[in-house]
């Protein structure tokens, strides 16, 4: 049952990415182009995602997950170096070609060889990340 829910959520997520235009790199870069011909579509996407999720968090505050266990604890509001640096690197890559991880995974169904190359490079980056984190932690320990 857990697997079915995961499969269903993935299918809904993937289809939503296609329908919303998140898979269209020109739309994403158009949204990030605040000083040019700004494309507001992504604001509507964000607004659309937040409505059901906001309700879900309200429900989650009063119950347990259907499949048992607990909801993930809220993280402490710590704005450490890895959060900020990670977000900067991610944003730079996102702006560079207009793909974030969700649409990159979904690109296996539409992106051709370019999408495949992006996904390969992203996986490599994910493999290198634990080492980069260790290095960052060591540096902040010294400082």
């Amino acid at each position: 049952m857990r697997l079915l829910i995961a499969l269903g959520a993935g299918a809904l997520f993937g289809s939503g990415l296609h329908l919303s235009g998140m898979t269209d790199t020109a739309k994403v870069q158009g949204f990030l182009d605040f000083f040019g011909a700004w494309d507001p579509t992504l604001m509507f996407v964000m607004g659309g995602t937040i409505i059901p999720m906001f309700i879900a968090w309200r429900v989650a505050a009063r119950r347990k997950p259907l499949m048992g266990g607990d909801f993930p604890a809220a993280s402490d509001p710590v704005f450490d170096r890895s959060l900020i640096l990670g977000a900067v690197l991610f944003g730079a890559g996102w702006g560079l070609v207009g793909l974030c991880p969700g649409p990159a995974i979904a690109s296996l169904s539409y992106g051709g060889s370019g999408g495949f190359s992006f996904l390969g490079a992203m996986v490599l980056g994910m493999l290198l990340a634990p080492r980069a984190r260790q290095w960052l932690d060591r540096r902040s320990a010294v400082a």
Binding site: A9, G16, L17, S20, T41, G48, K64, D70
Partner: peptide, 30 residues
Amino acid sequence: DWIWGLLGGLMIGCAGALFLLGNGRIMGAS
């Protein structure tokens, strides 16, 4: 385009709600 954006966004949000309320997990692609 904004209608499709809103509709697709609602689907993504429902997917996240399903994953959260069903399995108790955060739907983060990365």
